[in-house]
Design a protein around this nucleic acid. Structure first.
Length: 861
RNA sequence: GCGAGAGUGGCGGAACUGGCAGACGCGCUGGACUUAGGAUCCAGUGGGGAAACCCGUGGGGGUUCAAAUCCCCCCCCUCGCACCA
């Protein structure tokens, strides 16, 4: 009876074996380690195709490295704190803890069903006190070192949800949840002093050779270092000064006015009599629109020429950057130019383009926009004639010598505000005492456990505020009446050090120095590019804090980073019913109303566009091996992947062909002839089971193809994890294998040889079917504990190569020649080829090029 | 606006340091087996042409014996940042 490939049965069988034997557990040992990590998921309820892709990529790497002999650490867990759990509590009346626990249970089942090789002994959820207690511990340590502090600051506040929103939760100035207009509100907030490491975080980026250039660049821009000059402008008739920051000291003679941020302390003072006017400017603060300004009635003095400059308050000047005040040079800064135009302020040209000869003639033309490039200084007193770059130096020296300023370095990076007015997060371990003030919770009292018995109203902000037994405490230092901090931490704190927690098993103490030094850094991190800045920058910051606490000697947590592309799919719309799920289409028509459907563009899979594939259904229909295979085959990992049902069927067909091939040829594969001929057996070789030596003076073609395939697959994986081409190579081998029929019963061993190698190569990609067929051909070992096959370059070499003969760069003939012939011979063979001779008979040969013994180009005429 | 990446058959994608463009898969065409085929197997498949050949990697120019690949200009798409002084 013919056996059919039924992935469900095969996969469940081996998954239960893996579940009982736990073969993916890692413990520190003498072997070199390899720490492979994928970004842990938020337990939202179900996994999506993005997870499937992410975890399939990571799993192939983990399994491959295991076969290469590494002690692989491949853990998984749950990024379990966050707002959706709280929303569910309000909407569905399920407690966030229960909602999260249920989701984790379900998603863990889904991951297991994909056959992912995790070490579950290290699993944790960040919402467990045993985990988040360490968030609190880190906070206390940072508090001690002055790296955690409290200050008032402006935050995004949703007046309807009554909570702070992270910047990324504000979309076009509105709340992502309820679409209310977000307002700026001043609140006392806890901050982590990431800026203490800004210089190091920036400098170390250049050493991250295993990271995508794109991510490094995004972090550089985010840190935003810029060198410049801080200049103090005196105020006429006042002892006050206005320090400004500029990167364009060369334009100082062109300064025509000064602008203060609307929140600048001097703005407040200068406009005491016109609070309404100031308030108007503040309403437009930081908004990308028309510029608004208000004259303060005061003048500043330009230190280089004594010129009187009116002082304005302007909406476009940010308090958070530099000094909160700028010198405005309308001729050479587009923003200042627009402002000057609107308020009829003078524009003075002090920089002329170097390249144009126009500069010398006539008076200054009235410019239409600011000239922002470097050039040559004009009308700049002693600095006239200097080139911008040199002028910046000279002006800086002059300003410093006069004692009215100094060179400074400015950063865009701000300290990390971690306070959230939410329930489902890590309580900040701080107590406010009426007598002692701000008191940290003593380490021995950690963790400060989040109380479960709270009321979710959906309107009153954090339920912690009204949890009396949580809030009312006695002061740890004086024992008096005190209140607990009710804000919780940003959930990015949780994910900033989870990779360190994995270094110790669940039942071991966290932050074990020996475990950390054995496993860290993460050798390969895999995740979405959406975390390019926040999560990855916070983690780099935390790792440095961990280092400075003496827990580790390394600073960079992630040696190599792979940012996988998005999973995309075609969108389908019905003119009547809007976006349609793929299942709502039959014969190009909407199943609801029968209208012809419209095919839209291919976009990232999303529920709202309904262009999604359910992983459960996919696995149900085709099996996990097919789901993994297609995810890896359709595109290289860093690129976007276009999902296609037809493509999935192709992957399924491939596995079917392998399956039927093995069972159809079981007798040949396991019979007496499957043993390698004794004449060639016995020696040692790169490919292990069978020596790669010659058979009757030749390498049999199938054996050669096998060696070539091992070589290609190995190189494709090693070189940037190009799984798509690795899989293509395996498909070629399978094609050769199914086309092979042993002419002689003695040749059966070749089939056996190729089959074994093929299964070993397939094992990291499709572990279930590989294991099943390994078993079927009589192997008793566990394929995933086998060694990755080696190859022999000599055995992989073709014994005939195709020599391409070109005339003037165009292919005119191909001939088969033995490899390794000297160029002279190749040239002679090419020239004596009848076809070539004939074509050359009319003209004369100018030159002949030979390339790597495989191509001859004859330049003629 | 600034920065980064991409543009290759009907489609997803290959092509290591410049050296045969289109591997592999999907789709399509023809055939075989079949009561049947949306299963499986075999063959073909960039475009034009009967053929010799010609044309082809977003468009235009250039370097070179030779360009998808290197240089210049332009177009388009995707992503990131966006009044950062």
């Amino acid at each position: 009876m013919k056996r059919r490939y039924q992935p469900g049965g095969v996969e469940l069988k081996w998954q239960s074996v893996w579940a009982s034997k736990d073969p993916f557990r890692s413990i520190p040992e003498a072997r070199p380690k390899f720490y492979c990590l994928e970004m842990f998921p938020y337990p939202s309820g179900k996994i999506h195709m993005g997870h499937v892709r992410n975890y399939a990529i990571g799993d192939v790497i983990a399994r491959y490295k295991r076969m290469r002999g590494y002690n692989v650490l491949h853990p998984m867990g749950w990024d379990a704190f966050g707002l959706p759990a709280e929303n569910a509590a309000i909407k569905e009346k399920a407690h966030p803890a229960r909602w999260t626990r249920d989701n984790i249970a379900h998603m863990k089942k889904q991951l297991t069903r994909l056959g992912l090789s995790y070490d579950w002994s290290r699993e944790f959820a960040t919402c467990e006190p045993a985990y988040y207690g360490w968030n609190q511990w880190f906070f206390l340590k940072m508090f001690e070192k002055g790296l955690a502090y409290r200050k008032a600051s402006f935050v995004n506040w949703c007046p309807s949800c009554l909570t702070v929103l992270a910047n990324e939760q504000v979309i076009d100035g509105r709340c992502w949840r309820c679409e209310s207009v977000v307002v700026q509100k001043e609140l006392e907030q806890w901050f982590l002093r990431i800026t203490a490491y800004e210089e190091e975080l920036l400098a170390a980026l250049d050493g991250l050779s295993g990271w995508p250039e794109k991510v490094i660049l995004m972090q550089k821009n985010w840190i935003g270092r810029s060198e410049g000059l801080q200049i103090a402008f005196a105020i006429e008739g006042s002892a006050d000064e206005i320090p400004v920051f500029t990167t364009r000291a060369d334009t100082l003679f062109g300064a025509k006015f000064i602008c203060l941020a609307s929140k600048h302390p001097l703005a407040e003072r200068f406009l005491e009599s016109n609070k309404a006017g100031l308030e108007k400017i503040r309403e437009h603060y930081g908004k990308m629109e028309e510029k608004h300004g208000l004259f303060t009635g005061h003048y500043a003095i330009n230190p280089v020429n004594g010129e009187k400059l009116p002082v304005y308050v302007a909406n476009f000047v940010l308090m958070e950057y530099g000094t909160g005040a700028i010198m405005s040079v309308p001729a050479h800064d587009q923003r200042d130019f627009e402002f000057a135009r609107k308020y009829d302020l003078p524009v003075k040209v002090v920089i002329r383009p170097t390249s144009t000869g126009v500069a010398s003639t006539g008076g200054p033309p009235e410019p239409e926009r600011a000239f922002e490039d470097d050039g040559v200084l004009v009308d700049s007193g002693p600095f006239s004639g200097l080139e911008s770059r040199a002028a910046r130096q000279k002006v800086a020296e002059y300003i410093e010598s006069k004692g009215v300023g100094r060179r400074v370095v400015n950063y865009r990076l701000r300290d990390w505000g971690i306070s959230r007015q939410r329930y489902w997060g890590t309580p900040i371990p701080i107590i406010y005492c009426e007598r002692c003030g701000t008191v940290p919770v003593p380490e021995k009292d950690l963790p400060v456990v989040l109380p479960e018995e709270v009321r979710f109203t959906g309107t009153g902000g954090s339920p912690l505020v009204s949890a009396d037994s949580f809030v009312n405490v006695s002061c740890p230092s004086c024992g008096g009446k005190a209140r607990r901090e009710t804000d919780t931490m940003d959930t990015f704190v949780d994910s900033s050090w989870y990779y360190v927690r994995y270094c110790s098993r669940r039942d071991e103490p966290a932050l074990d120095r020996a475990n950390i030094s054995y496993y860290m850094p993460v050798d390969q991190y895999v995740g979405g590019v959406e975390h390019a800045v926040l999560h990855l920058l916070y983690s780099r910051f935390f790792m440095r804090v961990i280092r400075d606490l003496g827990l580790s000697s390394i600073a960079e947590p992630f040696q190599r980073l792979l940012t996988q592309g998005m999973v995309c799919m075609e969108t389908i719309r019905c003119p009547q019913d809007g976006w349609l799920y793929p299942s709502e289409v039959a014969d190009g028509r909407c199943v609801k109303c029968g209208s012809a459907i419209e095919r839209g563009r291919t976009e990232k899979m999303s529920k709202s566009k309904r262009n999604i594939v359910d992983p459960d259904q996919l696995v149900q229909t085709y099996g996990a091996d097919t789901a993994r295979l297609f995810s890896l085959f359709a595109a290289p990992p860093e690129r976007d992947l276009e999902w296609s049902e037809k493509g999935v069927e192709g992957a399924y067909r491939f596995l079917n062909r392998i399956f039927t091939f093995v069972y159809d040829n079981l007798e040949t594969l396991t019979g007496a002839g499957a043993q390698p001929p004794s004449a060639i057996a016995g020696g040692k070789s790169a490919c292990g089971l069978v020596p790669c030596g010659l058979v009757r003076g030749k390498t049999p073609p199938l054996v050669r193809k096998t060696h070539q395939t091992i070589m290609r697959v190995t190189r494709d994986i090693e070189r940037e994890y190009h799984f798509n081409t690795a899989i293509a190579a395996m498909m070629e081998l399978v094609n050769a294998l199914t086309a092979f029929s042993p002419a002689d019963p003695e040749d059966a061993w070749q089939m056996r040889f190729a089959t074994e190698k093929m299964l070993l190569l397939l094992a990291p990609f499709c572990p279930h079917i590989a294991r099943e067929l390994w078993d079927a051909i009589g192997m008793t070992s566990d394929i995933q504990l086998e060694t990755w096959p080696g190859y022999d370059e000599d055995a992989a070499r073709e014994d005939q190569i195709e020599l391409v003969v070109q005339i003037n760069g165009k292919v005119r003939a191909r001939l088969m020649v033995p490899p390794g012939l000297p160029d002279e011979d190749l040239k002679a063979m090419a020239l004596s080829e009848p076809r070539i001779k004939e074509m050359l008979s009319a003209g004369s040969i100018k030159k002949v090029f030979t390339v790597k013994g495989k191509l001859v180009n004859i330049v003629a005429q």
